[in-house]
Write a protein that binds this DNA or RNA. Structure first.
Lengths: 200, 200
DNA sequence: GTCTATAATTAGATAGAC
DNA sequence: GTCTATCTAATTATAGAC
């Protein structure tokens, strides 16, 4: 939150990129904590230790800052690829494990921002839906060959969305503090049942 | 949203209570749609067809209006009582059916406001957690006699939270448009498994 | 109860000096 | 790149007339 960035060979990046990164970090933290309209550009600037005008210099508008804060880190794609590489009958545990590990790593906060701001910010609501559809729903549907595939995937989506909200947004115990392993052991099989289990 | 209230025997309520109710309705709609900081008192007043000053006359502050909008309707308590009246092994379907029917009825919007504003408004975050704990977690824990009761109830909480968010907040298909019966048939048994099923 | 007028504050955004 | 100064608009909230 304050100043603790490595020197990174002084003069190499001329020094501007560091401020930009600090603003981005502060923005991610605040958007995730207070939502879009609850976050002020001034507060972001203060937390980043720079002048409010710099934020506009870098990102143009508050909306531009928000969009930049939502950029996914490059590790997400490979992780998701691994999920769908394995067999269908162990899909449940891989989905929940990948989700939890991705969101526990703090450099993947964009997903946290989405689940936090989606409720009241139109753009993030669309983005969240699109992200889930593109990365999860579509690929899952392609693997399932059942007439009720849509509903099966829908319940899986709802469940993992709930886990994400409970753990990272509302922080409801014991889900908020449980270890990844324990949650995977609990939730993985349940997801699997939604996906490939018998129709009740 | 505009003026379509019955006369209700003119002069009976002196006419003030009607404005108050319209403000409350408009507030519920807007808080649910745009969150706390995204909703302005002026917008609420405009949607209610009254002057902004009236809102302050009735509710003092914006926060007061918010609290008033969160008052649960009196039908909630009996509905929840019925959930816990039945046997433990059909608890899953009763929980999800009660939740869906309560939230589909538009006069129970407070719950929708909570799930929508909790992410970024501190008070609603606490209120949502307390509501779920008091009305669900505590009573469920009392009925379960297992060492892992907390985790079982925790996953149930996460699941129904996810269903609520998917159906009423992010409106993710097919959960958003599915019938109550279909969702109950899908999700009820899964909840039941979380609650009383074998440990995976 | 209802409205006008307005105070006090705060937000997003810009121009321009250094 | 960075900051000072500032403009404009919107917001919460109040005092007081009718």
């Amino acid at each position: 939150m304050t100043d603790d960035l490595p020197a990174t060979r002084p003069g190499r990046w001329r020094s501007g990129a560091q401020s930009r990164q600090r603003v981005l970090d502060a923005a991610r933290t605040l958007f995730a904590a207070r939502g879009y309209s609850g976050t002020t550009v001034r507060a972001v600037a203060a937390n980043a230790g720079v002048d409010p005008a710099m934020v506009y210099y870098f990102f143009g508008t508050k909306q531009g800052l928000f969009s930049a804060a939502l950029e996914m880190s490059p590790q997400v794609a490979p992780a998701l690829h691994a999920v769908f590489a394995g067999s269908l009958d162990s899909m449940g545990v891989r989905i929940i494990r990948t989700l939890l590990e991705a969101m526990d790593a703090s450099d993947h906060v964009p997903l946290a921002i989405l689940t936090r701001t989606a409720p009241h910010h139109d753009e993030s609501e669309v983005l969240l839906r699109e992200f889930i559809d593109r990365e999860l729903t579509d690929r899952l549907m392609a693997m399932l060959d059942a007439p009720d595939a849509a509903m099966r995937v829908g319940t899986v989506n709802a469940f993992i969305l709930g886990v994400a909200v409970a753990r990272y947004v509302v922080r409801m115990e014991p889900v908020a503090s449980a270890s990844v392993d324990e949650l995977v052991a609990r939730i993985g099989p349940t997801l699997q049942q939604c996906l490939t289990g018998p129709t009740a």
